[in-house]
Measured scan of single mutants.
Amino acid sequence: GSLMYASIFGNVSAIIQRLYSGTARYHTQMLRVREFIRFHQIPNPLRQRLEEYFQHAWSYTNGIDMNAVLKGFPECLQADICLHLNRSLLQHCKPFRGATKGCLRALAMKFKTTHAPPGDTLVHAGDLLTALYFISRGSIEILRGDVVVAILGKNDIFGEPLNLYARPGKSNGDVRALTYCDLHKIHRDDLLEVLDMYPEFSDHFWSSLEITFNLRDTNMIPGSPGSTELEGGFSRQRKRKLSFRRRTDKDTEQPGEVSALGPGRAGAGPSSRGRPGGPWGESPSSGPSSPESSEDEGPGRSSSPLRLVPFSSPRPPGEPPGGEPLMEDCEKSSDTCNPLSGAFSGVSNIFSFWGDSRGRQYQELPRCPAPTPSLLNIPLSSPGRRPRGDVESRLDALQRQLNRLETRLSADMATVLQLLQRQMTLVPPAYSAVTTPGPGPTSTSPLLPVSPLPTLTLDSLSQVSQFMACEELPPGAPELPQEGPTRRLSLPGQLGALTSQPLHRHGSDPGS
């Protein structure tokens, strides 16, 4: 009898404990919600809404976190579960008819179910419309201010047509639940991603989709105040780019002037030289400038040598048109050559190039014969006009050509200096018209024969001689050997007369 009593008592207590286990969990969670309300000092109306929603959600799901349970299964099984949970929507909604099984599984994985109690606001006026909503159960109302403009029910759709707008718009009203509602919502990016994977279904979906109420604000059109608020930074940046392009296009129409201050000032006329910023005076940081632009901040801005204009002085008759350009485009679109090309026009420029290279940067340069637009006047290309890779490749080509020119210049200078040193070592320090008596009659020769300089066969020296023939050397430049009979510069000019005159010897006659 005691054994029977113990078994009955144990079973009854276990049954009672299981009955009250759900209630215990409910009270535990309710205590957490109330502690949250007390800690954050939530006001009474919002506090009442929180408690009511918790009670309804507990009775609806029995305190089970559906998302946590669903995430515990593998992905393939999750797709089947989501397809079952959203079967009513996918079967009865017209846009989803005719979709393949794979497309429906992908869509079912992207849908999220939302449960809303009465009085809950789903979308506020001015919120971004980031999702498309399908009503599965219940009814909602749409308000503009305090005026109800629409009441939607089961199988209705609200949001915005995503295929017509590249960016999400703003809501033009509040969406509030009238009863307990079940909503299926899919985010904008998720829907577009699935439709991109199934393009054959995309056309059918957009053609058959009928949005019951379009929440997009109709005033959000390009150029409206609301649109400016939504895309303020983007609009200002776009206007700045367009104004920069218009100014650079105007600059290219004036090829007669070359400016070292950047493309923003290349198009300024002579009357605007004294102004601080020219056409860019209202925004000094709008356009890029070269490193020399920092010198323009000092006094005497109108007389600054940074602004270059072609000189009108005539060229000498024998002067060549100019050196070879550094870039391939210089032959086609440049009416002034790079300062480095002028360094190779003569030997005198070679000796004085490194010492006063900055001073020569603004000297007169030889002109190319074609009066085409200036290379320095070409505006900086924006990322939309020329690819970045093209600019980098041009810079690399320019750097390689500069290296080759520097190597060639160093070799030419070394060769010229070597020839000058050899000339100085071969010439005796001094010569006299009267020579010392020699031991015999073989001493009648006034000077030792001097062998002429070897013929220069280097390509670089031939180019130097060509430049010497075309360029007029300055007075202080050293002379180079030329073709024809060679003669030492330090010898007297009348050596031929010395050989014809008898030598005057000093000596005593033994017979006297």
Results as ranks from 00 to 15, higher is better:
residue 128 L to N: 08
residue 128 L to C: 08
residue 129 L to F: 01
residue 129 L to P: 01
residue 130 T to N: 12
residue 131 A to R: 06
residue 133 Y to N: 04
residue 136 S to E: 10
residue 136 S to V: 09
residue 136 S to H: 06
residue 136 S to F: 04
residue 138 G to L: 02
residue 142 I to S: 03
residue 145 G to F: 06
residue 147 V to M: 12
residue 149 V to R: 03
residue 151 I to R: 06
residue 151 I to F: 03
residue 153 G to P: 02
residue 153 G to W: 03
residue 154 K to F: 03
residue 157 I to V: 10
residue 157 I to M: 06
residue 158 F to S: 02
residue 158 F to E: 02
residue 159 G to N: 01
residue 160 E to F: 02
residue 161 P to C: 07
residue 161 P to Q: 06
residue 161 P to T: 04
residue 162 L to I: 12
residue 162 L to M: 10
residue 164 L to G: 12
residue 167 R to L: 11
residue 167 R to D: 06
residue 168 P to A: 07
residue 169 G to E: 01
residue 169 G to L: 02
residue 170 K to R: 11
residue 171 S to V: 01
residue 172 N to A: 11
residue 172 N to Q: 09
residue 175 V to K: 01
residue 176 R to Y: 03
residue 177 A to G: 02
residue 177 A to K: 01
residue 178 L to Y: 06
residue 179 T to K: 03
residue 180 Y to I: 04
residue 180 Y to T: 11
residue 183 L to C: 10
residue 183 L to D: 01
residue 185 K to M: 14
residue 185 K to V: 13
residue 192 L to Y: 07
residue 192 L to M: 11
residue 193 E to V: 06
residue 194 V to M: 03
residue 195 L to A: 03
residue 195 L to P: 03
residue 195 L to N: 01
residue 197 M to F: 10
residue 197 M to V: 09
residue 198 Y to L: 02
residue 200 E to V: 03
residue 200 E to I: 01
residue 201 F to D: 13
residue 201 F to E: 14
residue 202 S to A: 12
residue 203 D to F: 07
residue 204 H to N: 13
residue 205 F to Q: 03
residue 205 F to L: 06
residue 207 S to Y: 06
residue 207 S to W: 03
residue 207 S to T: 12
residue 208 S to T: 14
residue 209 L to K: 01
residue 209 L to N: 03
residue 210 E to I: 04
residue 210 E to H: 10
residue 210 E to W: 02
residue 215 L to M: 04
residue 220 M to Y: 08
residue 221 I to R: 10
residue 221 I to H: 09
residue 223 G to T: 15
residue 224 S to P: 14
residue 226 G to S: 11
residue 228 T to G: 10
residue 229 E to C: 10
residue 229 E to S: 10
residue 230 L to K: 13
residue 231 E to N: 13
residue 231 E to G: 06
residue 231 E to S: 11
residue 232 G to N: 07
residue 233 G to A: 12
residue 234 F to Q: 11
residue 235 S to G: 10
residue 236 R to L: 11
residue 237 Q to H: 12
residue 237 Q to L: 09
residue 237 Q to Y: 09
residue 237 Q to E: 10
residue 237 Q to P: 12
residue 237 Q to T: 12
residue 238 R to F: 12
residue 238 R to V: 11
residue 239 K to F: 11
residue 239 K to E: 11
residue 239 K to G: 11
residue 240 R to T: 11
residue 241 K to H: 08
residue 242 L to P: 15
residue 242 L to E: 12
residue 242 L to G: 11
residue 243 S to D: 15
residue 243 S to Y: 14
residue 243 S to H: 11
residue 246 R to H: 08
residue 247 R to T: 11
residue 250 K to H: 09
residue 251 D to S: 10
residue 251 D to F: 13
residue 251 D to E: 08
residue 251 D to Q: 07
residue 253 E to M: 06
residue 253 E to W: 10
residue 254 Q to N: 14
residue 254 Q to E: 11
residue 255 P to C: 12
residue 256 G to N: 10
residue 257 E to T: 09
residue 258 V to C: 14
residue 259 S to T: 13
residue 260 A to W: 13
residue 260 A to K: 09
residue 261 L to C: 10
residue 262 G to N: 09
residue 263 P to R: 10
residue 265 R to V: 11
residue 266 A to Q: 10
residue 266 A to F: 09
residue 271 S to A: 10
residue 271 S to N: 07
residue 271 S to P: 14
residue 272 S to V: 11
residue 279 P to H: 15
residue 281 G to K: 04
residue 283 S to E: 12
residue 283 S to V: 14
residue 283 S to G: 10
residue 284 P to G: 06
residue 285 S to M: 03
residue 285 S to T: 06
residue 286 S to V: 08
residue 286 S to I: 01
residue 287 G to M: 05
residue 287 G to L: 09
residue 288 P to R: 10
residue 289 S to G: 13
residue 289 S to E: 14
residue 289 S to N: 12
residue 290 S to L: 15
residue 290 S to R: 05
residue 290 S to E: 10
residue 295 E to P: 09
residue 295 E to M: 04
residue 296 D to R: 12
residue 296 D to S: 11
residue 296 D to F: 12
residue 298 G to K: 15
residue 299 P to T: 12
residue 301 R to E: 08
residue 302 S to A: 09
residue 304 S to Q: 15
residue 304 S to F: 06
residue 305 P to M: 06
residue 307 R to K: 12
residue 310 P to L: 04
residue 310 P to Y: 12
residue 311 F to K: 12
residue 312 S to M: 13
residue 313 S to R: 11
residue 314 P to C: 09
residue 315 R to A: 15
residue 315 R to W: 07
residue 317 P to N: 10
residue 317 P to F: 15
residue 317 P to K: 04
residue 319 E to H: 15
residue 320 P to V: 11
residue 320 P to G: 03
residue 321 P to G: 13
residue 322 G to E: 03
residue 324 E to C: 07
residue 324 E to D: 08
residue 324 E to I: 10
residue 325 P to D: 13
residue 325 P to C: 12
residue 325 P to Y: 06
residue 326 L to Q: 13
residue 327 M to N: 06
residue 327 M to E: 09
residue 328 E to R: 14
residue 331 E to F: 07
residue 332 K to V: 12
residue 332 K to L: 12
residue 333 S to W: 05
residue 334 S to A: 04
residue 334 S to L: 07
residue 335 D to A: 12
residue 335 D to R: 08
residue 337 C to P: 10
residue 338 N to T: 11
residue 338 N to S: 09
residue 338 N to M: 08
residue 339 P to A: 13
residue 339 P to S: 11
residue 340 L to D: 05
residue 341 S to F: 12
residue 343 A to T: 13
residue 343 A to L: 08
residue 344 F to R: 05
residue 344 F to T: 13
residue 344 F to D: 09
residue 346 G to K: 04
residue 346 G to P: 04
residue 348 S to V: 03
residue 349 N to S: 06
residue 349 N to T: 14
residue 349 N to M: 03
residue 350 I to H: 09
residue 350 I to F: 07
residue 353 F to D: 13
residue 355 G to D: 10
residue 355 G to Q: 07
residue 355 G to K: 15
residue 356 D to S: 11
residue 358 R to H: 06
residue 360 R to L: 07
residue 361 Q to S: 12
residue 361 Q to K: 05
residue 361 Q to R: 09
residue 364 E to N: 15
residue 364 E to Q: 09
residue 365 L to E: 09
residue 367 R to S: 10
residue 367 R to I: 15
residue 372 T to N: 08
residue 372 T to G: 09
residue 372 T to F: 06
residue 373 P to G: 09
residue 373 P to R: 08
residue 374 S to I: 04
residue 374 S to Q: 14
residue 375 L to V: 06
residue 376 L to D: 09
residue 378 I to G: 04
residue 380 L to C: 09
residue 382 S to K: 05
residue 382 S to H: 15
residue 383 P to L: 12
residue 385 R to W: 15
residue 386 R to I: 13
residue 387 P to D: 14
residue 387 P to E: 13
residue 387 P to K: 14
residue 388 R to S: 15
residue 394 R to I: 11
residue 395 L to G: 06
residue 396 D to I: 14
residue 396 D to R: 06
residue 397 A to L: 08
residue 397 A to D: 12
residue 397 A to K: 12
residue 399 Q to V: 11
residue 400 R to G: 10
residue 405 L to M: 05
residue 405 L to N: 04
residue 405 L to Y: 04
residue 407 T to M: 04
residue 408 R to L: 08
residue 409 L to R: 03
residue 410 S to E: 08
residue 410 S to A: 09
residue 411 A to W: 12
residue 412 D to R: 09
residue 414 A to Q: 07
residue 414 A to V: 11
residue 414 A to H: 08
residue 416 V to G: 01
residue 416 V to N: 04
residue 417 L to K: 15
residue 418 Q to L: 04
residue 418 Q to E: 08
residue 420 L to T: 06
residue 424 M to H: 14
residue 428 P to E: 08
residue 429 P to Y: 15
residue 430 A to N: 13
residue 430 A to I: 12
residue 431 Y to I: 12
residue 431 Y to S: 13
residue 431 Y to K: 07
residue 431 Y to D: 08
residue 432 S to N: 14
residue 432 S to H: 10
residue 432 S to V: 11
residue 432 S to C: 14
residue 433 A to G: 08
residue 434 V to K: 08
residue 437 P to G: 10
residue 437 P to A: 10
residue 438 G to A: 11
residue 439 P to C: 15
residue 439 P to Q: 09
residue 440 G to R: 10
residue 440 G to F: 15
residue 441 P to S: 09
residue 441 P to M: 13
residue 442 T to P: 15
residue 442 T to V: 10
residue 442 T to G: 10
residue 443 S to P: 11
residue 444 T to F: 07
residue 444 T to C: 10
residue 444 T to R: 08
residue 444 T to K: 14
residue 445 S to Y: 08
residue 446 P to K: 15
residue 446 P to M: 07
residue 448 L to G: 09
residue 449 P to Y: 12
residue 449 P to L: 08
residue 449 P to Q: 06
residue 450 V to S: 06
residue 450 V to F: 08
residue 454 P to H: 07
residue 454 P to T: 11
residue 455 T to Y: 05
residue 456 L to Y: 09
residue 456 L to F: 10
residue 456 L to A: 09
residue 456 L to H: 08
residue 459 D to R: 11
residue 459 D to S: 05
residue 460 S to H: 04
residue 460 S to K: 13
residue 460 S to M: 08
residue 460 S to Q: 10
residue 461 L to M: 09
residue 462 S to G: 09
residue 463 Q to M: 13
residue 464 V to H: 07
residue 465 S to E: 12
residue 465 S to G: 11
residue 467 F to T: 07
residue 467 F to R: 08
residue 468 M to I: 10
residue 468 M to N: 07
residue 469 A to L: 08
residue 470 C to W: 01
residue 471 E to F: 06
residue 477 A to L: 10
residue 477 A to S: 14
residue 478 P to D: 11
residue 478 P to A: 07
residue 480 L to F: 12
residue 481 P to Y: 04
residue 482 Q to A: 10
residue 482 Q to L: 08
residue 491 L to W: 08
residue 493 G to E: 13
residue 494 Q to Y: 09
residue 495 L to I: 08
residue 496 G to T: 11
residue 496 G to Q: 13
residue 496 G to H: 07
residue 497 A to M: 09
residue 498 L to R: 12
residue 499 T to Q: 14
residue 501 Q to S: 12
residue 502 P to C: 13
residue 503 L to M: 15
residue 504 H to V: 11
residue 504 H to C: 06
residue 505 R to T: 07
residue 507 G to H: 08
residue 508 S to D: 05
residue 510 P to T: 07
